[in-house]
Design a protein around this nucleic acid. Sequence first.
DNA 1: AGCCAGGTCTGCG
DNA 2: CGCAGACATGGC
Length: 291
Amino acid sequence: MHPGMGTLRLRDDQPLGLGLTLSCGQAFRWDHQGGWWEGVVGGDLWRLRQDGDRLHYDGPTAGTLRRYLALDEDLPAILSTVDRDPVIHHALGACRGLRILRQDPWEILVSFICATNTNIPRIRKMIASLAQNFGGEVPGTDGPRYRFPSPEDLAHGVDLLGTCRLGYRERSVAEAAARVAGDPGLPARISGLPFEEARDTLLSFHGIGQKAADCILLFGYHRPEAFPVDVWVRRIMYAHYLAPLAGSKVPSEKEDRRIREFGRDYFGAYAGYAQEYLFCAREMIGRGRVP
DNA sequence: AGCCAGGTCTGCG
DNA sequence: CGCAGACATGGC
């Protein structure tokens, strides 16, 4: 039942901010209760608690946990490549230990279809509802939890999808489930594609546009060059990095593409990390409030 | 009450 | 192409 339970000693040159990492908007199914973070990963219940340089875990094996949390990556080395100015520098300091998780591509694909034009609390509710209605039950500390439904789980019960209150995202989720259920190798195949081809494949899904595709690449496929431009990042970039082209309407897909290309060029191969730190520090650095 | 939300699609010029 | 408007729903 529980593959592993134990304590991982974190290296002091490889920081981890567990709570920040699990709650910053890249994952939607972690809950904080009784001092532990609890979630379902790969069908198993995981419980995690950080105490300084000690990471207590119940559920995963040490190796699986390290991989999920990307503790195998040299975070300071990565961040040093994007630490180019006072704004990003401030965000890096404010979100110390934030890591980009290695999550399941299918779960992230559906999650970011649901994440369009709504807020994070409701995204969490929509995904919780999908899991509760379509995923299998997993006993948790404080009542039952649910694994994330497979494409087949969703495709076989589309008639119940309405109970999840996805709004106009329902059609996109149903089509994605049908497509992947009929081509189960697709998510894995995408991971083997060059970046732009992977992105184009994601864009061929109904309900996945530029922003969602970049989130799926960054959070589901761990492609750190992806630079998702949402309403917050757009604000931050316009406040601190570049002005809209004269005469351009903002927001527009064209302007967002310009921001994405700027971000990719300016921050480099790990632009996605810069994006995520800016997003997580959005309350502090948005709307022209310079640190 | 009304604006906004980790946008995207469609139908027009 | 590139630009409006529509779109379901609910958080704050």
